[in-house]
Computed example of a mutant assay.
Amino acid sequence: MNNSIVLNVEHLHIRVSTPQGMKKIVNDVSFQLKKGEVLGLVGASGSGKTMTCLAIMGLLQESAIIEQGSIHLGSRNLLQLNANQMRSMRGKELAVIMQNPMSAFNPTITIGNHFIETLRAHGSFSRVEAHEMAVTYLAKTGLPHPAKIMDQYPFQLSGGMLQRVMIAIAMSLQPAVLIADEPTTALDSVHQVKLLEQMYLLCQEQNTAMLLVSHDLGVIAYMADEVMVMNNGRVVEKAPVAKLFDQPEHPYTRMLLEARPGMGTAIPEYEQPEVR
């Protein structure tokens, strides 16, 4: 395996039990993530994006069955690990940022305690060391007065601030892979750009590979090195971001691009962030 490849998904097939019987949700999906690179994953609801991510994280519901395939993080096949082994991988090697930050936090626990508990659960940090690292990473995401934020509760922060806290917690353990599932859905365009820049900078600084899931093609164009398009559980196209937007080959890809108001097949205006 190429040394720059950190995650290798091969021939993944997933079926889900439904009232109408077993339904194939993910059909022969293969892709790789490389150190420091961003792979954008796009497709309509039900295309298999989220199921693919849940399979990587080992968080599929019992109704979902992986029929075939492998998911290698480095040399380890994640599908062969038991629940405890996968739990130790999540956070430390595999990190995830969800689209609803408020649901990720206990409203009765301060941001500082959330952060410190996470660090100490995955590493041999004293409380003082964990506190210092938490403040450092909150500052890295552009949050003002990080020491003050440590003493605040989730409901005292805006959605954008909580997203930055989630990024800080996720990146503080320097994971090999970061899965970002619709990370900017609840934010306006100005806050989207700032958040994306911080995510990209941290991934570059730590050589973390990112799988960025989004329905927003502007976000994908802004962040991704390569783009993978899914439809009905299959990967229908995968290409470097500029090529995919300029010369989409699959009819479904062209439909997605043309469906975005005022976009056509052109790359959005803010496709080139200053951090790149």
Rank of each mutant, 00 (worst) to 15 (best):
R127K: 11
T208K: 05
S4F: 06
G91I: 01
Q68V: 09
L81Q: 11
C53G: 12
G233T: 15
H215N: 00
A55Q: 06
L195S: 06
Y222D: 09
A170S: 12
K24F: 04
E67N: 11
A239E: 10
I220F: 00
M263P: 08
M228W: 00
Q247I: 06
D225W: 03
G48F: 03
N27V: 03
Q156A: 07
L33G: 06
H114I: 04
M210F: 03
H215P: 02
P251G: 08
P248G: 07
N84K: 15
A242I: 14
M22S: 15
M223S: 11
C53N: 10
D216T: 08
L178E: 08
E226P: 10
N84P: 05
L256N: 02
N82C: 09
V16D: 10
G43N: 02
G69M: 08
M102I: 12
C203K: 10
G159A: 04
E129K: 10
G123V: 06
G264W: 12
K49L: 03
S158V: 04
Q99M: 04
M22F: 13
N84L: 14
K34W: 00
E67Y: 03
N2T: 13
R164D: 00
Y270P: 05
E197I: 04
V177Q: 08
V219Y: 01
G112W: 02
Q247S: 12
N3Q: 15
G36F: 00
K35A: 11
A221R: 03
D216F: 03
L244G: 11
G233P: 14
N77K: 06
S17D: 14
E129A: 14
R260S: 10
F105K: 09
M1L: 15
R76I: 09
T118Q: 05
I14E: 00
L119C: 07
G142M: 02
D181L: 01
A130L: 03
Q198V: 05
N207L: 04
L157I: 11
P107R: 14
L212I: 02
R76T: 14
I116K: 13
K34Q: 14
V96R: 14
K24L: 11
V190A: 13
P273L: 14
S189Y: 12
E129F: 02
M228C: 07
N77P: 08
A180E: 04
Y153R: 09
V235N: 11
L33M: 06
L202I: 09
L173K: 13
M22N: 13
S30N: 10
M86Q: 07
S172I: 02
P261E: 01
L7K: 06
Q247L: 08
H250D: 14
E132N: 15
T50D: 03
A170Y: 01
L39Q: 06
H191D: 11
R90H: 03
G160P: 08
K49R: 02
